[in-house]
Design a protein around this nucleic acid. Sequence first.
DNA 1: TATGAATGAGTCTTCATTCAT
DNA 2: TATGAATGAAGACTCATTCAT
Lengths: 203, 203, 203, 203
Amino acid sequence: MDDWRVPDPSSLPPILEAALECFARGGYHGTSTRELAEAAGLSVPGLYHHYPSKQAILVDLDRFAMNSLWSRSNAALADGPQDSLSRFDRLIECLLLLHAQSATLAFVAFSEIRSLEPEFRAEHIASRDRQQSLLDEVVADGVRDGYFSTPHPRDAARAITSICMGVSQWFRPDGELDPAGVAERYGEICRQAAGYVGRASSR
Amino acid sequence: MDDWRVPDPSSLPPILEAALECFARGGYHGTSTRELAEAAGLSVPGLYHHYPSKQAILVDLDRFAMNSLWSRSNAALADGPQDSLSRFDRLIECLLLLHAQSATLAFVAFSEIRSLEPEFRAEHIASRDRQQSLLDEVVADGVRDGYFSTPHPRDAARAITSICMGVSQWFRPDGELDPAGVAERYGEICRQAAGYVGRASSR
Amino acid sequence: MDDWRVPDPSSLPPILEAALECFARGGYHGTSTRELAEAAGLSVPGLYHHYPSKQAILVDLDRFAMNSLWSRSNAALADGPQDSLSRFDRLIECLLLLHAQSATLAFVAFSEIRSLEPEFRAEHIASRDRQQSLLDEVVADGVRDGYFSTPHPRDAARAITSICMGVSQWFRPDGELDPAGVAERYGEICRQAAGYVGRASSR
Amino acid sequence: MDDWRVPDPSSLPPILEAALECFARGGYHGTSTRELAEAAGLSVPGLYHHYPSKQAILVDLDRFAMNSLWSRSNAALADGPQDSLSRFDRLIECLLLLHAQSATLAFVAFSEIRSLEPEFRAEHIASRDRQQSLLDEVVADGVRDGYFSTPHPRDAARAITSICMGVSQWFRPDGELDPAGVAERYGEICRQAAGYVGRASSR
DNA sequence: TATGAATGAGTCTTCATTCAT
DNA sequence: TATGAATGAAGACTCATTCAT
C-alpha cells in the first residue's frame, strides 16, 4: 500500500478548498468573509451556517494539512523495508511529494501560523514538533547505521525540513518538474544534506 | 573589509524598527496604524508626517531588507580570495549570518510579500530573483571548478536558499547557537547540499 | 364566581410561555428567533409554522395580558356587593393579585410597548386607556359616595395604577409576601392614596 | 440653597442628550449606532471617538441619572427644617420634580436596566437600593414621630417610589400639570399613602 | 410540522486616513 | 510635528425570515 504517494484531491471539503485559494492569494487577514463566501458560492450567512467563524475555517484548514502530513508520513515510514536509509528516503519522498502536490495547502498552513489564535497556534506547533521528531529520528537512525556522516543530525534534519517546506514556496504545477521529479531531485539533495556516504562505503 | 559580517543595528530608522516588531508579532494586516504610531512613540498624524501610508512603511522595510541582503552579499563575494569555493563559502556565511542576526527583518520581508501592493511586490520579486542569481552563479562556478558534484546546480541553489531563509524561522538569540555558530554549522550543510567533494579530491 | 382571584397557569400557550420567559430576560430586541424556538422546543421553521413573525408573538402575548387584565377586572367588579367601596376594593385586589401572580407577563407587556409596531402599539394603548377608565370610574364613584376624600380623583387613580403596576417590578414568588398578602397590604395603601375616610365616618 | 428644585438642562452632554432621545423612542436594542451618530450630528466613527461602545453610552446615561437623583435627594433632605415630616415632604418633592422635569431620562434609566451588561446592572441596582433606603428612612422616621400611621413603612415607601417613578411614564411637558403642580398634587397623595394623620392630630 | 441550508439587510465596531489647531 | 476630532469604507458577524425536503 502506497496511498501516501498519491494526491487526495477529493478530501478537502469545497468550502475549505475555496478558503484555501483565498488565503493563498490574499492571506488570512487580507481575505474578507465576503470573499470567502463568494469563492465558496455562498452568501455570507450561508458560510456561517457551516463554520462559526472565519478563524474556524483557518483552523480546520490547518488541522487538515497537519493531519494529512502526519498520517502520510507514518504510512510512508511503515510501507516497505525498515532499514534506516529506506525509511529516510520514503519519509523525504513523502514530504517532498506532499509539499509539491499540495503546495498551496502547505504554504497556507505554514504562512498563517501567526493568524491562528493562541490556542490553535499551540496546537499547530505541537503538530509541527511531533512531525519534526519523525525526521529527527530517521536522520539519527541513519547516522547510527552509518548511512549519514553529519556531525549534527538535528541541524541536518532542520535543514532538510527547510528544503522540503521550501518546495511549497516555489513549486508550480506547470513548472519544469512534476511532484515525482521534485521528490527524486530534492530527495537526493536531502541525502547529501545529511552527509550521505553512499550505500557501498557504508557497509 | 568585512563589514558584511557585523550586524548594523543603527541602520534601521526607529519608525521602521517599531513597525518591524509590530509586523512580526501581528502581521501587516493585523497591525493598525494606531499600533504602529504608538510603538514608534508618535501620534497617528505624526506617523503620517513621516510616511504617506501604512503600505509605504512596509515597502521601506522590505526595501531595506532586500538592499541590505544585496549589498552585503556583494561585499562578501568581493572580500577575499576569488576562487569559486571561497566565494560560495562567503556568500553562504553572509546569508546565514544575516538571517540569524536580522531574523525578524528577514522573516517579515519574506512573509509579507503578499501584503505588498502589486507594484511593490514586483519590485520585491525582482530583488529576490537578482539575489538568487548570485547563488546560482556561485554554485554553477563551484560545479564548473570541480568543488561540487550536484547534477542540478539550480535545484541545489534553491535548496540552499531554503536552508538559509529557514534560519529566520527558527533562530532565537537565546538559543543554542549564535549567528556565527549557525553560519559554521549550516554552512557545512549547504556545502553538502551542493555535493561538496572535498578540497583535495577536487584538485 | 371569583375565578378572577385564581391564577390561570394553563391559559398561556406553551410557545407564548417560552417567549415570555425570553422577553423577560433579554427583552424583545435582545431575543432572537432562534432562542425563542429553542425555548419552545421547536425548530425555527417550526416556530414560524405557529406564528408568522416574531412581532406576532409579542402581539399575542400583549393581547393576552391586556385581555386577561380586562376580563378579570370586569369579573371582579361584577362579583359581589355593588357599593362603590366594595367595587374599588375588588378591582384593586384583582389588579394587585394579577400583577403579583403574573408579574412576568405584566412586566413584559408593560416594558415592551415600544417594541410593538405602531398599529399594535395603538391597540395596546387603547386597551390600557380602557383599563384605566375602569379605575377612574371606581375612584370617582367612591369620592361621590363619600368613601374617598381625594380632591383629584384622576391623579389618585393614576397613582394607584402606578402602585399596582409597580408590583410586577419587584414581586418575587419567594419573597416575604404571597400574592394575597400583596393584595391585602397594598390594597390598604391604595385606599389611603385615594384619601379613604373610613367606612363609619363616611356614612 | 435649593438648587435641587431647578432643572439643570445644561448638564447632559450633547451626545448623551441625543442618545437619550433615541433610546426613549426606540429602546436601547432598537437603536442602532448609526441612528445614535446621526442624532448627535456625527458619523459613526465620530461617535466612537467619544465613546468606546454603545453600551458605554447607556452606562454614562444611567450613571448620570442615578447620580443626579442621589445628589438632589441629599440636597433636598439637607435644605430646610429637619423634622421628619419636612424631610419627607422635601424628598418627595424632589423625586416628583425630577421625574417630571427629567421624565425622559428617568424613563430610560428605569426601562433599560435589562440592557445593561451584568457589571453595570449591578451598579445600577446598588444605586437604586441606596436611593430607596433614603425613602425608607424618611418614612420610618415619620412613623416614629407620629406623622404617619402606616403599619408597613417599607411597603408604603415602595408604593411611594412606584408613584414617583410612574410620573416619568405619563408626564408630558404640555400636559395639564407642570412639574411643580405634579409635585404638589402627587406629594399629597404620597403623604396619604404613608398614612398621614395630619399635623395637628399627630402632636 | 422538523430539518438543513440559505439569504438580504442589518448589527456593532474598526480601519486607514485627513484636517484644523 | 503633536493633538483631538472626524470620516467613508469596510470589517466580522447576526438578524428575521424562507424554502426544499
